[in-house]
């Protein structure tokens, strides 16, 4: 009887405890899929990466779920976007995890926005302006030059957290950077027709993409970041559309279709649903796929 009980307890523990593969040496907790993908490109089999969110979740509105706390507890490196994107949940997950190594300020806490120059830094901070990010727009992942810059900084950080594998990370970055630069050349060539194309955006989530490709953003459907567009706002935009016509509306995969569909139907321009991050479409299964698919969709929309 007691033997049976002990066996059961051992069986239960053996299911619960070895949750983490033994081969990988660093557990990386990435807040969003793009940094998870980047960490995998650089770290290869030396890292065990978890993305805390999926492409279909609004990165501003994530809950500090127990599973995230459990995962943060046994991570050696947190890769966050920073610039207050994860302000609503990450600080709590980190504090609740009881893991001192991944607290802000420690080597185990990395912010991607620390490696790039942010756009749209607000001149004034007021919550009446909606969901403003004091540090600047945090949606940096849609400019491949940013990906490379973050990759370089992340490599240095991985090497700091796990010095034994520093050479492997450096080699991983070199491999990735070579492929990435080649791909960037390809993308920039393919995207030439997009230069100067006027577009509407659903949420101010594409400034880096627009800056890279030279898209001309006429404005956002959301009157204020994080505030859903009302009918008066959309009617006003429709008037502006008549004066200065945009060619398409850009919407991230996680967002509600209502306002962009309304606008598209009346303005007779296509809505281009962009994967926004890795996993946002079936083609965007990794970082290369993300940009391949983004460009393909933009070019189709601009035709």
């Amino acid at each position: 009887m007691i033997d049976k009980l002990i066996l059961r307890v051992v069986a239960l523990l053996s299911v619960l405890l070895p949750a983490l593969p033994a081969t990988a040496s660093v557990n990386v907790f990435a807040t969003v899929p793009e940094w998870a993908a980047l960490a995998k490109e650089i770290g290869g089999d030396k890292v065990n990466v978890l993305a805390a969110t999926t492409a279909l979740q609004d990165p501003h509105r994530i809950e500090a779920r127990p599973s995230l706390i459990a995962r943060a507890r046994s991570s050696q490196l947190v890769v966050a976007t920073g610039a207050d994107l994860e302000i609503g949940w990450l600080p709590l997950v980190l504090r609740e995890s009881g893991n001192p190594a991944i607290q802000p300020g420690q080597p185990g806490y990395f912010e991607a926005t620390s490696a790039v120059r942010l756009l749209e830094v607000p001149a004034r901070l007021d919550r009446a302006d909606g969901d403003v990010h004091p540090g600047g727009n945090p949606h940096i992942q849609l400019d491949p030059r940013n990906i490379l810059a973050v990759g370089e900084a992340l490599t240095a950080r991985l090497a700091q957290v796990d010095p034994a594998n520093a050479a492997a990370y450096k080699a991983g970055l070199a491999r990735f950077a070579e492929r990435w630069k080649a791909a960037m050349g390809r993308w920039e060539q393919a995207a030439a027709p997009l230069r100067g194309v006027p577009v509407w955006v659903q949420h101010k989530g594409f400034p880096y993409l627009s800056a890279w490709l030279g898209l001309k953003e006429l404005g956002a459907l959301e009157p204020k970041p994080g505030v859903e567009a009302g009918s008066a706002q959309l009617a006003g935009l429709l008037e502006r559309q008549k004066a200065t016509p945009a060619r398409m509306i850009l919407r991230p995969a996680y967002a509600r279709p209502t306002s962009s569909d309304w606008m598209a139907e009346r303005a007779k321009i296509p809505v281009v649903v962009l994967p926004y991050t890795v996993g946002g479409s079936s083609e965007a299964s990794d970082l290369f796929g993300l940009f391949d698919d983004t460009l393909r969709r933009l070019l189709v929309g601009a035709k």
């Binding site: 619960l16 405890l17 949750a19 983490l20 127990p66 599973s67 459990a70 046994s74 609740e96 893991n99």
Partner: peptide, 12 residues
């Protein structure tokens, strides 16, 4: 005093 177990399942 609280302790979070190092498991995939959250245990506190």
């Amino acid at each position: 005093l609280r302790w979070v177990a190092p498991t995939a399942l959250f245990m506190e």
